[in-house]
Nucleic acid binder design. Structure first.
Lengths: 140, 140
DNA sequence: CTGCATCCCGTATGATACTG
DNA sequence: CAGTATCATACGGGATGCAG
C-alpha cells in the first residue's frame, strides 16, 4: 500500500522532471507546458466549446453558441480564434448566401478532447462538490 | 481507419451523454462537471500549485510561493483556500515560533494530479506551440 | 447569418505595506 | 513565517450596434 503510493510519487516526479527540467525555481525552464499551452485551452469556455465540437462532427457559430449556453458572441469568437491559432480547431467558410461558417476539431483537437473527457468524466464521478452544489447558469 | 475514428466519436458521445445528460441545450443539467468543478481547479495557478504539491510530500507557504514563481502571496493564499475547500489540499498548522504551516495533497488531490500530469505531459509532447514560443515569466 | 467593434463594468490580479 | 488589507490597474466578459 505504502509502496504503491511511493511508486506513484516516483512516477509523478519523473514526469515533472521531464516536463519542467531540473525543477530549480531559481532557473525555471524557458518552456512551460502549463503556462504556455494548457492555460490557453483549459478555461471553462474553451473546454465546453471543445467538448461540443467533439460531440458533433462540425458546428456553425450560432449553433455552438446555443450549446455553450451563456457564452456571448464576443467571447465565443475570441476563444474560437485562439483555439484555431493553437491548432485545436479548423474553420471553414462557405461563401453562400447567407454565409455559412463551420467549425470542427483538428486531429490534434480530437486528441485533446479525448484527454479532456477523461478528466471531466473523472471529475464528474469523483468530486463530492459537483453533486453538492446544483446551480442555475443564468438560463432563461 | 475510418471505423477507428467512428469508434472514438461514439465513445466520446457516450461519455458526454453520461456526464451532461440528454444534451439538450434548452434544458441543460443542473450539474455540470466543467462549470462546477473543473473550472475551479484548472486555472494556471491552481495547476502549478497542485503539481508542486504532487512533487513534494508537503510544502510550506513561502516555499510554495518560490516554486510557483511569479505568484503573489494574495493569489497563492486565495487559491490554497479554494483548493482546500474543494478537497484537493490539506492544511496543517504547527503552533511553533515562528509559525509553521504545511500544505499537502489529499488523496483526492493526489488522484487529480495524476490526471493533470497526463494532460500536461501530453501537452508538452504534442503541442507545436509550446516549443515555438519561449518566454520569460518575469523572472529576475 | 456570421462575427467584429465599441463601450462599459466588475472582478481578478499585482505591488506594497502591515498584522498575528 | 504566514498571511491580510489596501490601493491601483488590467483584463475578461456582457450588451449593443453594425458590417460583410
Amino acid at each position: 500500500m505504502e509502496s504503491t503510493i511511493d511508486n506513484q510519487s516516483v512516477s509523478r516526479k519523473k514526469k515533472m522532471e521531464n516536463m519542467f527540467g531540473h525543477l530549480d525555481y531559481k532557473h525555471p525552464p524557458r518552456l512551460c507546458p502549463v503556462r504556455d499551452v494548457l492555460s490557453q485551452a483549459s478555461d471553462q469556455w474553451s473546454i465546453l466549446i471543445l467538448l461540443w465540437l467533439g460531440y458533433y462532427p462540425e458546428l456553425r457559430f450560432n449553433k455552438l453558441k446555443k450549446y455553450v449556453y451563456g457564452i456571448s458572441s464576443k467571447v465565443l469568437s475570441q476563444r474560437l480564434k485562439t483555439l484555431q491559432e493553437q491548432g485545436y480547431v479548423e474553420r471553414e467558410v462557405f461563401p453562400e448566401v447567407p454565409l455559412r461558417v463551420e467549425y470542427r476539431l483538428t486531429e490534434f483537437g480530437q486528441s485533446y478532447v479525448e484527454r479532456l473527457l477523461e478528466l471531466t468524466e473523472w471529475m464528474h464521478q469523483n468530486s463530492p462538490m459537483v453533486k453538492a452544489n446544483p446551480k442555475d447558469y443564468g438560463l432563461k
